[in-house]
């Protein structure tokens, strides 16, 4: 009997001192296993007188249960501890803001183009598109730019083969629209254009928005009104605007439209090259010859046309000094928009 008590006491002490599950398991085997100390005692039950066997058996059983209890308690204690430990490790500060998703951004060229199209849309223009690869007829001839005429010098064209070329402006689309629809019309044409020209402010591939309006009794005053509104929308109403005489084969009279230098306000600087003005638009009243090509009666209808370079406006708006930055796909540049 004392033997049982001794084992039980010993076991309690050992178990309470256990630091890890391995040792705990070893102790379980030591006391309760197949060759465990208590299990061994059961063998000696046979040596006892019959009357004492049940008492002894019960004592051994009780001891077994107690030890088992101590072990399972210790075991659950271990489990609690490890659970706590892992909870500690994974502790989350739920007051932290969520992790933001990486979103894409609109390219500055697209941004400016959309802004320009929006202004003209507000002024009542609809939008048309056309092919990048054009024919000489639509890009030049129908715009009153005959073959071998010195005015062709105004564009450094990239030819593909024979009559096929890369369009130098989006004006050809105006012809395409006028061929299919009758006036009144107010259309803007955004798109990519191509010219043999490359330096800090010129790129062989760039973007334009050109437009036209045809109706009865359209005057130069209407042209001035529309374009002045546009420039004031884009650059602000405080900036002065000026129209000066110019030349395009498809408009007569022609004008170029400047806005007061955004950098120096008209005093003269590097951006406006000392003149105080920055040219934004080319424009004019549509030449009757152009109407003849699209079979509009020039006696009945008149109209105006205009065009601008998107890169130009974007460079002014965002203070970019090298046009090549738009096309290098450098995230360090693009991220800033």
């Amino acid at each position: 009997m004392e033997r049982v008590r001794a084992i039980l006491d010993e076991a309690s002490v050992m178990i309470s001192g256990v630091e890890d599950q391995r040792t705990l398991e070893d102790l379980r085997v030591k006391y309760l296993g197949k060759k465990g100390l208590l299990t061994e005692l059961i063998k000696y039950l046979g040596d006892l007188p019959a009357a004492e066997r049940p008492k002894m058996g019960k004592a051994i059983n009780d001891a077994k249960n107690q030890i088992q209890h101590l072990i399972s308690d210790k075991q659950s204690r271990f489990e609690d501890l490890s659970k706590q430990k892992s909870l500690q490790k994974d502790i989350l500060d739920i007051t932290l803001p969520g992790r933001a998703e990486k979103t894409g951004k609109i390219h500055p060229i697209s941004r400016v183009m959309n802004e320009v199209l929006e202004v003209f849309s507000k002024l009542g223009f609809s939008i048309a598109y056309g092919p990048d690869v054009e024919t000489d007829y639509y890009n030049f001839e129908a715009l009153n730019i005959p073959a071998h005429h010195p005015s062709r010098d105004m564009w450094s064209t990239l030819y593909v083969e024979g009559d096929v070329l890369l369009r130098t402006h989006t004006s050809p689309v105006q012809i395409r629209v006028m061929e299919k629809q009758n006036p009144p019309l107010a259309v803007v044409v955004p798109g990519r254009v191509y010219r043999r020209d490359a330096d800090v402010t010129h790129s062989t591939v760039f973007h334009q928005v050109e437009g036209f309006l045809v109706d009865r009794d359209v005057t130069f005053g209407d042209l001035k009104g529309a374009l002045t509104s546009f420039l004031h929308y884009i650059f602000g109403r405080q900036k002065k605007v000026r129209f000066r005489p110019s030349y395009f084969p498809f408009t007569e009279p022609s004008a170029e439209v400047d806005v007061q230098c955004v950098m120096c306000g008209g005093d003269g600087c590097r951006i406006c090259k000392g003149t105080g003005w920055i040219e934004i638009l080319g424009s004019g009243m549509i030449d009757p010859n152009v109407f003849k090509y699209v079979k509009y009666d020039p006696e009945k209808f008149s109209g105006f046309a205009f065009g601008l370079g998107i890169e130009r406006v974007a460079m002014l708006k965002y203070g970019i000094d090298d046009i090549r930055l738009f096309y290098q796909n450098d995230l360090r540049f693009l991220r800033q928009f």
Binding site: R244, S246, Y247, K273, G274, E279
Partner: peptide, 16 residues
Amino acid sequence: LADKLSMGGLEVGALE
């Protein structure tokens, strides 16, 4: 002069 020329049809693109 640059301004007058530009407004008259001969654009002065730069004054250096």
